[in-house]
Write a protein that binds this DNA or RNA. Structure first.
Lengths: 355, 355
DNA sequence: TTGTAGGCGTTATCAG
DNA sequence: CTGATAACGCCTACAA
């Protein structure tokens, strides 16, 4: 590891000059061409500042802590972590990861992060609900991901569930569907009521009636399958908006039992896509992708902009992000999701069907 | 943050004495009771060493780097990360996480980890294959996870695929199955041939013939379903060992089409368990859990033992681990997996069926 | 415009 | 046994 001192010696300048030049603080301190010269020799020597030494001095580490409850309980955690890591990497930050197991190790993990001097915290939940960051974080730079903060000081970032429901439903309407069913979830999740709200709004905006009989909340396994089956018999829907992939499965299953073909007789839009669905269903359901990657990505960027006290350049993220959330501090960020077409929507000669 | 200097002042000892006492290096340097006294006041002041300062001096950081290719491409990554993080946390280490995207950012991410001074590297792949760590890591403390190293200097840790196939098949044999089919994967994965080997060995050990017609390698979607369907017609197997959850789905689907009931007419043992399967199948397939958590956990422990140059106490891991791998440096570690019964095995009045 | 010196919190060396 | 003191690499007053 080459040090600042060695650069100084080689470039014939003082340590101060080198430090100044390397941090682009030449202002009225170091002559322009000397600064250039220093930077060039530094580069040629492959000089990289030692983050430890720098941090010890500045008490800033250019690291952020990612705190996740039960990282592995959902398959989405990986996406979120990846997004956050991508943003951190783009901005020259490192990410420290800790897991909390719900058994009270949270405090000690956070304490560990504090000791290592992270500049800020990403506090990640695994599905949107009203939540609070622990008091030990409330005065630190913190962003809450995938949960709604009740503490208005803490920015949070959640999927735009209403838009999901709206987009899915509007898409089905556009494609010419007549009786659009909503297969919801009986667990009382926040996402459930919000997606339903979007569904209803889309119908209303299209001057369609809302038929409560087309809306079913189902649980799991046999019971759920039966409930969906009953719906098929009762209302013969020609389109389905499904709360999640398990619900999509029930619909496909019921359709198969009746000899109905997805993409011809019925249309299906689902949320997210399990690997099983990818490897077993034909045609693939049209899907709204859950924005876990984006939540991680924008959460980390937001956090770092707070840390650095200024807005960041717009991200050059390699994944397509439907909408760049504003970075003004107060408001929550709602991420709009992307619709992925997969040919499971019947072409009824209309706009969406024709695409 | 209280510093060593403050502790020195309060306890009336010198900084040196405090440092010695706190690191339990009193040996012949600090009187036993003074050391005790120092430790007590340090504790009462809530003193915690500043890792940055310590690292600057010792050039050891008590951090490890977790390098993962495309963290989010499989749902298992979360498990692996979690396992590694748990082990690190237990042993007082922090984990820095970086992602490599296969587009050549690997070198720069590793360089970043190096600059931050991590003590060792976990190089994680997402399924077992023959692989090498990049040259930049070959002289560092490195453990390869979920891949077989061709460089014999690098320890690696992989699932015991043969044991998986053996256990699953032996279990089906014990439960009284007659015609045990193997539904494999046509992608040519290492896991595929190893699990098949286990399947064959179990049959051989039980003096059962190996019927090639009971062994099918299938791809995905419709083609796979048809192949499994043909197998049902051709051989009427009464038990199935499935390479993964998608294969399990094909079997359930074919059974349903024929009015066969899993757990009564046929027995199924699968690998791993997708959420869709959990929420839709009844009864649940008997499953062999993939050991991603364990690979992460034991990988990190192995790494840290290398870093510290000595074996570690046996882990008090909160998850049950089938077998504690030996920590002798040279050999690869193969993790034996856990069989999880879920009532999908027909009770034919035999040992396994009765459990 | 440049260079010197002090300090961030630790650990390690080396006289007392 | 004990306690100054010098590093570790970097930043930044402040003096030249």
């Amino acid at each position: 590891m080459t040090t600042i001192k060695e650069v100084a010696k080689k470039s014939g300048a003082s340590v101060t000059a080198v430090s100044m030049a390397l941090n682009h603080r030449e202002d009225g301190h170091v002559k322009k061409d000397l600064a250039e010269h220093i930077r060039k020799t530094a580069k040629s020597m492959g000089y990289r500042p030692n983050p430890l030494a720098r941090s010890l001095r500045t008490s800033r580490t250019r690291t952020i802590g990612f705190i996740s409850e039960e990282i592995a309980t959902t398959p989405y955690a990986g996406e979120m972590i990846l997004g956050a890591q991508d943003a951190a990497s783009e901005l020259g930050y490192m990410m420290l990861l800790v897991n909390t197991d719900g058994n009270g190790n949270e405090a000690s993990e956070i304490a560990a992060l504090k000791r290592y001097g992270v500049d800020g915290y990403l506090y990640a939940k695994m599905y949107d609900r009203v939540s609070n960051v622990p008091k030990s974080l409330s005065h630190e730079h913190t962003v809450l991901i995938d949960a709604t903060s009740s503490d208005k000081k803490i920015p949070y970032i959640v999927p735009d569930e209403v838009a999901m429901g709206y987009d899915a439903t509007a898409y089905l309407i556009q494609s010419g569907a007549e009786r659009i069913a909503y297969i919801g979830c009986s667990e009382g999740l926040l996402a459930e009521s919000l997606r339903l709200k979007g569904y209803e709004k889309a119908l209303k905006d299209a001057d369609r009636p809302i038929d409560p009989e087309l809306i079913v909340d189902v649980d799991k396994n046999g019971g759920a399958l039966k409930a969906v089956s009953d719906l098929f018999e009762r209302k013969r829907p020609d389109a389905f908006f499904c709360f999640n992939d398990a619900r999509t499965w029930y619909v496909y299953q019921c359709a198969a039992q009746r000899g109905l073909e997805v993409g011809r007789d019925i249309s299906v839009v689902g949320i997210d896509n399990n690997r099983i669905i990818k490897e077993t269903f034909e045609p693939q359901p049209t899907t709204i992708a859950l924005p876990h990657y984006e939540m991680g990505y924008w959460g980390a960027r937001r956090l770092i902009s707070m840390i650095e006290g200024h807005d960041l350049d717009s991200g050059r993220n390699r994944k397509t992000v439907a909408q760049i959330p504003p970075l003004d501090a107060a408001s929550p960020v709602r991420i709009r999701c992307t619709l992925i077409e997969r040919g499971s929507v019947a072409n009824r000669g209309t706009a969406a069907g024709k695409r």
